[in-house]
Design a binder for these strands. Structure first.
Lengths: 314, 314
DNA sequence: GACCATATGCTCAATCAGAGTATAAGGGGT
DNA sequence: ACCCCTTATACTCTGATTGAGCATATGGTC
């Protein structure tokens, strides 16, 4: 136990502290997360907290991303600090994870950076083309087995958890429950993850090193939550864009399609964007007006966002 | 820069990692936060992350709180990781902060624990008895001076920031902007805080050691946000309670009064509580029915909360 | 028994989300 | 030139939700 009267710099045990960035962008209608190749497999960009070089943690992440990737990142937000014993073999290592948003652009470098399709990591999260097949093919049967092999006194609890997490039974799919789903799938042994005793056949989604896919899941959940009440989408969009593009990007992150007319009304009503006067002719139909983000709203309004009430779909 | 190909336990520089708990309760209509006396002044309960003893960070905080205070805490949630260089004299020290909720009960121990009235730390945040006096007596004049002593090209930005943060001018007071307000007051040199060059006269609110009042501000903001969409209030309430008590507790955290009839309708409609059959006679008027929290909703509903849309007042 | 205080129940209007229908403005084929 | 297809944009309708006020119930106190 440490001395609870002392306040100030501790001289007690120290821990390894790393920084991890979940850098998100959008390429057309594909949400992307930046990964780098490592000896231990594909991973999120990470590095150690370098002593006293940076005044703040965010500055340290900015420098890390800048030096490793040279990618201009437009938004940083601290996500969570992961510190489970087992997350890294060999002892406790903390990872302070940051969510970062960037415009899509090619990246290259010694770390073999790659813009990974987000839904390769979480195929069950993309409902834009209807209910993902893996749910009925893999998840629902596995949930059934999990419930069947369950002590009777726990059955009600487990059933409830399964229904809520995956929107089976009476419950509806909640786009926000990304982490819950990830963790339940992990329990169901459907994820091939580092540290697992033996390899899985037919594991779901693309694996990342260590607990990095879990970190990415936390980032997706946070991002989906933020969409509704902060204008963060614009950080991945170019300077000017059409309302359709804006909607497609929101849909890409939300993993579901939105009602087009209402989306327009919402965006217009929120005064988040203003027309530039230009048009985009490449639509294949009537040309679309180009808009730009009214960056003033960042200072104007208390909590402007896309107003997507609970990310409601069509 | 660290080797970006390595994944696993780092052997690079290590950092001091501490844990800090913001333990919240309610005593009648007074929101409380638990502080301990230290050589450096009044502080939040803190300790070092003790090597490999705990499997998770939350377990470590639980143990820390248990051993230091012996207080039964009913809810833990990771808040933020603070790691500014300057937060602790002598070099970088990380603090992983947790928000904790407990039922109010006396505490004692070697650390001189004390249930501090939350609004002693942030007197400007309590609007339950109308607009706090300090705003017009101290803050608004200071904002005026800050704007007057401002380079012309920055005036518009500063004015906007001031209006938004403190709800002056056209903007309305936003209960959620706790951290923004804290930081602006700090910039205005209205807070007597550790690390400040010279003591202030007439500083606002009760000071805590290091950056602990800032951590508490982050906790209040988080808690106010959570109220609206997760049933966390019940963790500070006794097993049974009246709807008035429930409302008073929500009002205590929100720092503003709520419309009574709508509050009732809301709580009833959300199915968050069920009547016990008992009544509380000590009301001074018609006896109030006693309710209990339907703990099942934690598993039933995706995002149940008090439904306070943007914490709307009367 | 009048009066006060608090709890509880109901109504009403304004607003907003969800969904449908209609019109505008391009391009490509015949 | 015309029709048709595609996408963009505009308007309407309906039900749900919110903010606010009014009315009633049930206890205690003077």
């Amino acid at each position: 136990m440490s001395d609870d009267r002392r306040v100030g710099l501790a001289d007690g045990p120290q821990a390894v502290v790393g920084l991890t960035a979940v850098i998100v962008s959008v390429d057309g209608t594909t949400p992307r997360v930046l990964t780098v190749g490592t000896d231990g497999g594909e991973a999120l960009p990470s590095g150690d907290l370098a002593g006293d070089r940076d005044r703040t943690l965010e500055a340290a992440v900015r420098r890390l991303v800048g030096e490793q990737l040279g990618l201009p990142v437009r938004y940083f937000e601290q996500l969570y600090t992961f510190g489970d014993q087992a997350r890294v073999p060999g002892g406790r290592a903390l990872a302070v994870a940051y969510l970062a948003l960037a415009r899509h652009q090619p990246v290259s470098g010694p770390g073999r950076p790659h813009w990974r399709d987000w839904y390769e990591l979480f195929p069950w999260e993309d409902w834009r083309r209807g209910r993902p097949g893996v749910l009925d093919q893999v998840v629902v049967p596995a949930l059934g087995a999990w419930l069947a092999a369950c002590p009777a006194e726990e059955l009600a609890t487990r059933t409830e958890r399964a229904e809520l997490t995956f929107g089976t039974g009476n419950a509806r799919w909640d786009p926000m429950r990304v982490l819950d789903r990830y963790e339940l799938l992990y329990e169901l042994a459907l994820l091939e993850e580092a540290g697992r005793r033996r390899p899985l056949v037919g594991a779901l989604g693309h694996q990342l090193a260590l607990d990095h896919r879990r970190i990415a899941a936390a980032a997706l959940e946070r991002l989906r939550g933020k969409l509704a009440y902060r204008p963060v989408v614009f950080e991945v969009l170019p300077e000017t864009f059409t309302l359709s593009t804006l909607q497609q990007v929101v849909e890409a992150f939300a993993g579901q399609v939105l009602h087009k007319q209402n989306f327009r009304r919402l965006v217009a009503g929120a005064n988040l964007v203003e027309p530039t006067g230009g048009v985009d002719q490449r639509t294949g139909g009537r040309p679309a007006e180009l808009y730009r983000f009214r960056r003033e709203v960042l200072r104007e309004r208390p909590a402007p966002g896309m107003g997507l009430r609970r990310l409601g779909g069509p």
